[in-house]
Design a binder for these strands. Sequence first.
RNA 1: GGGCGCUUGGCGCAGUGGUUAGCGCAUCUGUUUUACACACAGGUGGUCGGGGGUUCGAAUCCCUCAGCGCCCACCA
Length: 881
Amino acid sequence: MSEIPKTYDPSVVESEWYQYWLEHRCFVADAHSRKPAYSIVIPPPNVTGILHMGHVLNNTIQDILARKARMEGKEVLWLPGTDHAGIATQNVVARQIKKDEKISIRDLGREKFLERVWDWKNKHGSIIIDQLKKLGASCDWSRERFTMDPGYSKAVTDTFIDLYNKGLIYRGKRMVNWCPVALTALSDEEVIMKPQNGAMYFFKVQVVEEPNTWLTIATTRPETIPGDTAVAVNPKDTRYAHLIGKHIYRPLPTEFPEEKKRIPIIGDDHVEFEFGTGVLKVTPAHDKADFEIGQRHKLEFIDVMNPDGSMNDLAGADLRGLDRFKARKVAAEKLTELGVLEKEEPYQNNVGFSERADVPIEPRLSEQWFLKYPSVPRSIEVAEKGDLKFFPERWHKVYDHWLNNIQDWCISRQLWWGHRIPVWYRGEEVRCQAESPGADWTQDPDVLDTWFSSWLWPFATMDEATLKKFYPTTALVSGPDILFFWVARMVMAGLEYTGQTPFSHVYLTGIVRDKIGRKMSKSLGNSPDPLDLISKYSADALRFGVMRSAPLGQDILFDEQHVELGRNFCTKLWNACRFRQMHAGEVQGEIDPTKLTSDDKWILLRLDKAIAEIGDALRDYKFNEATSAVYRFFWSEFCDWYLEASKAVLNGTDAAQKANTLAVLDFILSHTLRLMHPFLPFVTEQLWHGLGYNQDMPADQGGTTIMFAPWPKPLGAEFLQGYSLDESDERFVEAKYELVTKARNLRREFNVSGAKKVRFVLRSNSELPAYEAAVLKLLLNAESVDFNAEVKKGTPSVGTQLGDLYLPLEGLIDVSAEKARLNKELEKIDAEIVKVQEKLNNPSFAQKVPANVLEEHQKRLADWRSKREAVLRNLKLLEGE
RNA sequence: GGGCGCUUGGCGCAGUGGUUAGCGCAUCUGUUUUACACACAGGUGGUCGGGGGUUCGAAUCCCUCAGCGCCCACCA
């Protein structure tokens, strides 16, 4: 046992213990262990990323699960790593190069650029890993993986080849979400719909065959008119149905000859009667729905834009070279000049934005690789059958809905940073294989969507032995924002390639928001730097604060005050342990059951309850409940009551009794530290050693580190019986504490300072044992507690379950005031009695209510009545002689 | 348009049919009492978004309205 210093300096302690754990290989998972396995794979953060509050939440939860599992005797693997994050990383490095060297990456060339990205990765890639270490994450760093590691990359390539050979991957010219800034295709999931304020343009077109007939078309995108290859109406729409088969002249580009502007009027069910004018311009190359109409009617596809979103030659002389937004305005002007623009109305619609570049995506026809998702029915089935469970459960529905409506996944990206598509071309020949078939073959220039690699994460990260021991993993902890991107896809890949769901529990955290509910973001500047919080309050404090405010799957409104609370809690723990140590003595061994005081029994029972509660809460992933239970037990029950009561013995003279109380204190503290360790790994480790609890333990049971000390189990019937702990002890002690609270209230009401030692009188039928009297005296800060002594008329009093308590006050007695006070009290009690009685008098209540509820109500009534009697007794005393 | 979540004291949340609706923060009062002022003791403050229903009994179940938020969806 080393001496616990007066103040706790987390900054030193935390880094020392982390180093210690690393040196003792505490986080390393043994694939050949005989212990039952518990495994988690980390959601790999972006290599370019820095730790934010979402990571703190996510990884604290995983760490809690991992640490608890270790203490429960499991062989734990928490597998860490990072994601190459294609677009994000490419952007970051490209921007840096542009800034430093004023050159674009195209100038640099593919090979050179990739070298730069690797340089960047090697230089900065460990930042977020180091930050996780600061947080206390107990990951097995010896197994750290990166999605572009050679082995991992091979898995990605092999997967592609396999799915290709199965006919699930195909190449096709289709409508994709095109990001005009990143110049790449995106998956549907990477598109974010945002309401935009734009305009609806109404323009008219002349029917070729009926020059007197004009149709009015509504559009938000007049710049795409040069790409229109038909006009569509609903065949059931009587206003227009007769025109199907005829033609109109497309107004743009103006300089085109008439025959080039002549486009058909077609009938298609997709057109809504009510919307706009009921006439739809069809632009198959620039709109997903129009593309489908185009296919149905074998229309021409005219692409009028360049990849960067500017207009090309086909858009005509007026628009050529203009940016799409500028072109929209110019197109509207042209329509006005032609005299065909009827009106322009403000209009709000949803526009898809590129997640990364935050610009409107362009639906664009392009040649891409697509994947028909594998193992979809089984993915739905495993969740239905409960082999895959969601916490909270409601996410199952969301998962299910997505799987039932998925479209093929566009997996190719026009980027350089990522896994190259393993497809080779020679003229018309195509081959899908890892290595080049020969010198005259060229590889597909595209890379794969980052998620096409991360969906293999739970198994592609593991070697054979590790897989055998730790796969499938136990739990996955993720934010709900990547449920589709990552979680669902991992299930599919897992089922397809391992035949098993890669994890059986999915815990979806809330999203961390600021205290007024906004999403944390760099641009708002409302995201605190977790490292600042750690250096200000400690990692333990940060973890505790975040956990305490993280209800099951609800969004978390982050407030620094939570962290402050966490720090205060650590300090409280520190001081309570110091208190134990100040009362000297070596760690006490066994508790002598015959020497237990009522308070000892009470706190042991409370501990038992807390252990059960914390265990249950953690089993259900209710981290805030677990944290609250820890908090309540330790602070409100142990510190506020037991510790204070224990001073009656510790400051006394009975050495044997003292030793027993110290043994109880050690028992409680040892359990408490272990219960807290998953939440507060550092301070608990420090105190575990500081109090010497490691000394009697075998090395793998907490002798070296609290990390492997056994996780507390409920004490069990045998223990409770052996120590003769039962409800009567609980009731008595609670009555005692109730008396103390009431007495303190009495002081308050009569302005008697809590610091002043005063005399109390307790009048009761049964005498209190000396120990109880001593505890009362201490808790009441009394000069004495006189049993059944005489009190003067008008002495303030309060009725308790242990008797009537009086606070004799010389010279301060005011009979009428006291009478008024008691009468007021009486009124309150009477009201309660009426309430309960009314319930009990209701005949259907007595009939229908279960026996225990009835009993409870009767007990309550008796309780109120005895309180009433106490007040009446005292009133009588006031009036009497 | 569909789905989901939320609405409890000033703020953030617990409580999902049965004690006097809890907790933390904030606030007010008192206390520097040898574990802790990052503390201790005590207090003020809510009838549980509105309305209706089921029930002996509802914050808790059902219906409905309203507000906030999220997700999904090819209405130009």
